[in-house]
Nucleic acid binder design. Structure first.
Lengths: 163, 163
DNA sequence: AATGAAAAGTTAAGGAA
DNA sequence: TTCCTTAACTTTTCATT
């Protein structure tokens, strides 16, 4: 992975629908050269996908909360994570250091839905209790941040979290 | 916004680089009809952008943390948020209910960088103290969740080769 | 990685349901 | 209105150098 790859990545982080021709203009390469590089970045797991960002309110998801998941003594974290993944309102799931096993971000339509979702979370086997932080407003989210200088290629190939 | 719009949104959440022709096949419309609908969704602020997702490790951002920001009594929250926005390692920023004014997600290369970043956060005017939760692993993140967009074959369309 | 050409997609304009 | 077809233009996607 060289500077050009990093430039392409930064450009696609900023605009995921940029055409190869555009990218080529930005980095000073032909469209086909860019096409081949992007294909390699996708196949090697560096680029994991492209997604439209949507105003959550416009899609009926006006309530966001961050929920810490306290495991019971018998809690198997992988099984808990799998149960969390089965709930569509759980948008993100982080295993964390500290008393809590996970912090998840959930998005629902109403506070009633939030209450119902928390009940579901607490009913997951291995979950002892939850700690909920209600989001009042999202100041910004998921900003593209591609550091200008990056270390050398990932050792062997990119380690994978479940895709 | 009707069912077709929701289907288009769901498809673009799943694959932000889907072509208009592809989207048209998925929802049973012509490419130009989809083109026009997507343009309206973009102009009305429903779709806010398209972004490549990148394996943070591959781009040299192996350390993630969630940081609660405790404001001092004199803290102006908008000014704090602006200061947070100025730090590139702050990827997301949520104003929250509770003792803390904000919870932010930061991404850096090393624990040394994390320490330096926390110092910067605490030096922000209006920030009394921080509470840091280190992320050990990201089980999943930013999953597409678009309620009410059940992907059924379009009515009155026979030639289907499944998606 | 560039070139060049065929296939595919994009995008505006005009008209129909 | 929304959608379709047409048609010119652009991009993608190859094989080749």
């Amino acid at each position: 992975m060289d500077l050009v790859d990093r430039q392409i990545i930064a450009a696609l982080r900023a605009n995921g629908r940029a055409t190869y021709a555009d990218l080529g203009r930005q980095v000073g390469l032909s469209a086909s050269a860019v096409h081949e590089r992007v294909g390699k970045l996708e196949n090697s797991g560096v680029i994991t996908g492209y997604h439209a960002m949507v105003d959550p309110m416009a899609v009926g998801l006006g309530v966001t909360a961050l929920v810490g998941i306290h495991p019971s003594d018998t809690g198997d974290e992988d099984r808990i994570a799998a149960s969390l993944a089965a709930l569509p309102e759980v948008e993100s799931c982080y295993a964390v250091a500290g008393d809590e096993a996970f912090v998840v971000k959930i998005r629902v339509s109403t506070v009633d839905d939030l209450e119902r979702s928390l009940v579901r979370l607490r009913r997951i086997d291995g979950v002892a209790r939850t700690r909920t932080t209600v989001v009042l407003s999202t100041r910004f989210e998921g900003r593209p941040n591609t550091p200008g200088s990056i270390a050398d290629p990932p050792p062997g190939d990119s380690p994978n979290r479940g895709a």
